[in-house]
Design a protein around this nucleic acid. Structure first.
Lengths: 184, 184
DNA sequence: ACAGCCATGTAACTCGTTACATGATTAC
DNA sequence: GTAATCATGTAACGAGTTACATGGCTGT
């Protein structure tokens, strides 16, 4: 980050590079269907705050159509800043906050059955999450093979996420197996 | 969280349940070798802040040995609160902040060579991270097979993390393959 | 008529970070 | 002697959240 806007700002700005102009509300929806899986889902209130800031910096333009909502579009300056950010900014290692792993670390303070129940609950959550992402992924399939395919990279990232969920599922099952083998 | 301390507080408290008493400094080291991989590495200053808060709540006791540093130990109340937290508190789905995936999502704004370089850089970072965790894991091997093995769960979590890094590595290699197949 | 979605924002607050400050002890 | 590690804290700030407030429009 160092000299500039927070990452979430650039992330939201990036969501405006897919050829359309969005309202704050729509931008939040797009964040919920993409950013959510690899970054964060900013709160509605933060989306508006960020849009105001991006607008102050001239990175997006706000077009108020009379009688309608305000639509935001990335400006040439915004595009310039974003590509510069992508090219120059150092990239942090991914940060994971994993409440299940954290609790498993403290498994000696839990009933064995509670540990198993927790992991099984997590399997269910994972499956729901995976389905959400699968739907997003399917929605990106439309443009596949297109010469100017705008969703090529989002689709790659979605594949990555799906693979991550699959791996997580395999490993949690393996952990359950190990716990059951050792318990009795 | 709802009614109580933030998760990081309980996480640090949890690190005091492995049978020893630690200084703030040592607690930070333990966090760096465990929490870092699944949760966060709180800053030194935050470790002291949390210890003060835990102490205020009577969840740890501070023992000041004259001429030496202050050592913190979990109290019975702390153990009670922590096990209650583990049993009752709802468990959030893991939150991932993945700067590499975020940038790949915006791959259409980068040079193809820059995208590949980014992923290769990430492979290197992953490998260094994996080695760090491997060393931590090896340090936990000592007590394997022990009847009262205190590190059984930390070892399971470390295995989980190592598997995650391995999966991530596989998938990034696959992404590089796909990018190269499509580029020319 | 009422629910649910679309649309926008402010205010208070929490978590956690960096910067700053200090000083003792240990290793080379 | 001087660098690294051990040890402890305060202060300022930033990022992001929840709670609150408001109001139109749409479907049943």
């Amino acid at each position: 980050m160092s000299q500039g806007l927070p990452t979430t700002s650039y992330a939201l700005l990036g969501l405006l590079t897919f050829g359309d102009e969005l309202t704050g509300y729509e931008l939040k929806q797009r964040a919920d269907s993409t950013l959510r899986f690899y970054w964060v889902s900013p709160a509605m209130s933060q989306v508006y705050t960020e849009l105001a800031r991006l607008s102050d910096h001239g990175l997006v333009s706000a077009e108020q159509e009379p009688g309608g909502p305000t639509r935001y579009r990335i400006t040439p300056a915004g595009r310039r800043d974003l590509t510069r950010w992508l090219a120059d900014e150092p990239i942090d290692f991914p940060a994971l906050k994993h409440p299940v792993a954290l609790r498993l670390l403290l498994g000696h303070l839990m009933e064995p059955a509670a540990v198993e129940a927790m992991l099984e609950g997590y399997l269910g959550d994972l499956d729901r999450r995976r389905q959400d992402l699968q739907r997003v992924h399917d929605g990106l399939e439309a443009t596949r093979g297109d010469p100017q395919d705008p969703f090529r990279f989002p689709r790659l990232v979605a594949d990555w996420g799906l693979e991550y969920y699959a791996g997580e599922r395999r490993m949690v099952r393996e952990l359950l197996r190990r716990l059951r083998n050792a318990a009795p």
